[in-house]
Design a protein around this nucleic acid. Structure first.
Lengths: 224, 224
DNA sequence: TAGATTGTTAATCGATTAACAATC
DNA sequence: TAGATTGTTAATCGATTAACAATC
């Protein structure tokens, strides 16, 4: 057994795991049972050495000249992410984004299952989103307790995000996946994961800006 | 003028810029014209020293004991992100996620404007999403050229993502914001920004897993 | 003024990358 | 076998953090 797996896995590696997972499942579906770090690196545009480091975090041992067993890697990565057991979650806010997330098939691959949807809007309560009925926020605590859910996905308007987050925590939720572009102030032991479109767009913007600047610089130097 | 701003800004700083921007705008709306790094750090749960470093990247100079001028910071950050001029983009794939993105009001704050929606589904073509009419994919190249758009937002099914991406590139698009959980293989000079729900959920999963492990460890050591 | 806050230089920390022996 | 690939140790790189003088 690889010793490194016993230490905590670096965050950048954790963040690369899902991409590996998707690719490995493609290989599995294609009937390939072995894959080399070189091959993974090529397909994901990473460096082979980085892939090998990442793979060493999974605890899976490879065979020189052959590579790694695809299925073993899949199992190991899913285990390290806790994706081998389905995690139930409730979703608050049946707006556009909320509905999109409920309908997002990819979640099945992450072991995430949205088992209840809650909203305050009377027009939405009672309607069905991808087979899940929207409930009144009044049922929040009862639902959390009855279903034994630990995670809430938050897709409410920014104005009420803090208030709703506090209700959710009061109901017993331990982790919040926050899609609202707003920082939540919550007790330290509550895990808040923010998915912020702005962060990703900021990265794209700055890359485009840089690329434009580089082009105009090249043009200028050609003119001289 | 601060010299550091002339060098390229570290990616982690770029990624923190949107959060600063939101908070600064809150302060501006509240009528506050000065803010200290200490205060920003507190609200965003960062360390003051990190905020000062980040602020130094904006090129804005602060005043000892007072802090930074809110409006000046807003302008500087928006400028560095290229958010001071509206950027037009087209969106391909009028599914749930696509519609959610078109309706996402926050984009106005990023200077992102979705000026056209394209889809292959005949049932969707001609319908209106938040005031923008869905067009046939046949109009792709014409639309890109006519509107002079450089960015495409991709929210199509994974199976067709590669194919659509190639069409989009052929039509003249320079940057792709890819919401499809699939790696695209495209020419090197095309900027692809991937927003991957799985990456964010992987982070949440591993944090929850770690927190559960820590709790059970504490419990065990208390029993001894 | 006294003290809070800035800005810069240097130290630390952690991730990536290089180098290379081990191995199938 | 020869050579591709793994796994580990050490070097490098870049971001975060510490320390502290400057300043309003």
């Amino acid at each position: 057994m690889n010793k490194e797996a016993l230490f905590s896995i670096p965050l950048p590696t954790i963040r690369r795991f899902p991409a590996y997972l998707r690719l490995l499942k493609d290989f599995e579906n294609a009937g390939e049972s072995w894959v080399s770090a070189t091959r993974l690196a090529e397909d994901l545009r990473l460096k082979p050495i980085q892939v090998r480091k990442d793979m060493s975090c999974t605890g899976v041992e490879g065979k020189p000249k052959v590579g790694f067993e695809v299925h073993e890697l899949i199992m190991a990565i899913e285990h390290h992410l806790g994706w081998d057991n389905a995690t139930d979650a409730i979703l608050i806010g049946a707006g556009n984004l909320g509905n999109a997330l409920v309908g997002y098939k990819g979640f099945a691959n992450y072991g995430l299952r949205i088992v209840a949807i809650l909203d305050n809007d009377k027009k939405k309560i009672g309607t069905t989103v991808y087979g899940v009925t929207v409930q009144s926020m009044e049922h929040l605590e009862e639902t959390v307790v009855r279903l034994g859910v630990n995670i809430a996905v938050l897709t409410v308007p920014a104005e009420v995000a803090q208030e709703v987050a506090e209700m959710v925590v009061a109901a017993g939720i331990k982790g919040i996946w926050n899609f609202v572009p707003k920082n939540l102030t919550l007790p330290e032991d509550i895990i808040v994961q923010r998915t912020d479109l702005a962060t990703s767009f900021a990265e794209l913007s700055s890359r485009i800006k840089k690329s434009i600047e580089e082009k105009s610089r090249t043009k200028r130097s050609l003119q001289n």
